[in-house]
Computed example of a mutant assay.
Amino acid sequence: MLVPVGSARAIEFVAEAAGDWALHCHMTHHLMNQMGHAFPNMIGVKPGGLDAKVRALLPGYMTMGQTGMAGMGEMGMPVPPNSIPMVGRQGKHDFITMGGMFTVLKVRARLDGYKDPGWYDNPPGTLAEAAGAESLRRDGIDVDAPAPVEPGSPA
């Protein structure tokens, strides 16, 4: 859904799938807050002394980091008082590495008021987990077989 600058939309829906649902977006008008800047995407770039040089013109400047927003929670980047920080937050299973236009919609069968219900308790067997050799064998996967060779790669 596209929502023009300076406007809002009310969305009505039936919340029948219990859980914690991530909602995030990137829209052009977000360039008006701290999600936008005049510099190219720096993901993967090692900025070296860039921050110090840019701070001569923009005091307090910080490069977004080599892996995107993943490290921003630890950076302590100050934000304007009228902004929501893009630093992410601790989630139930790990650190949520998004901020800005991000929220978690918490759907439960019964909610008593507006108090945070806490993190969703996933039913047993519904979360992904690392597969060990025993579970792979149980699923018919031969863990002792040599890995397939990709076409064009050295044997």
Rank of each mutant, 00 (worst) to 15 (best):
Arg137Thr: 08
Gly88Asn: 03
Pro80Phe: 09
His26Gly: 05
Met42Leu: 14
Thr103Ile: 14
Asp94Phe: 13
Gly68Trp: 12
Ala18Glu: 15
Asp121Pro: 01
Gly76Ser: 01
Glu129Gln: 12
Thr103Trp: 05
His30Phe: 13
Glu129Ile: 00
Met32Thr: 13
Ala109Cys: 06
Arg110Asn: 13
Val5His: 06
Phe39Gln: 07
His26Glu: 09
Val143Glu: 06
Asp142Ile: 03
Leu111Arg: 06
Val14Glu: 14
Ser83Arg: 02
Ala145Cys: 04
Pro146Ala: 02
Ala10Thr: 11
Arg89Ile: 03
Ala133Asn: 11
Gly88Arg: 01
Gly49His: 11
Ile96Ser: 01
Pro47Trp: 09
Ala52Gln: 14
Glu16Ala: 12
Gly60Ala: 08
Leu2Pro: 05
Leu127Gly: 04
Arg55Ile: 14
Ser135Val: 03
Ala147Leu: 12
Phe13Trp: 14
His30Glu: 15
Asn41Ile: 09
Pro4Leu: 01
Gly73Lys: 00
Asp94Thr: 04
Arg55Cys: 15
Phe13Cys: 10
Ala17Met: 10
Met72Pro: 00
Arg55Phe: 13
Pro81Tyr: 10
His24Met: 12
Gly125Leu: 07
Phe39Thr: 13
Lys106Glu: 02
Met27Arg: 07
Ile96Gly: 09
Leu111Phe: 05
Asp121Asn: 10
Ala147Asp: 10
Pro123Lys: 06
Thr67Val: 09
Ala38Asn: 07
Ala17Ser: 11
Arg9Phe: 02
Leu58Trp: 09
Val149Met: 07
Val104Asp: 11
Pro47Leu: 14
Val14Cys: 12
Ile11Asp: 08
Tyr61His: 09
Pro148Lys: 03
Ser83Lys: 00
Pro117Trp: 04
Ala22Ser: 01
Met72Gly: 03
Phe39Asp: 00
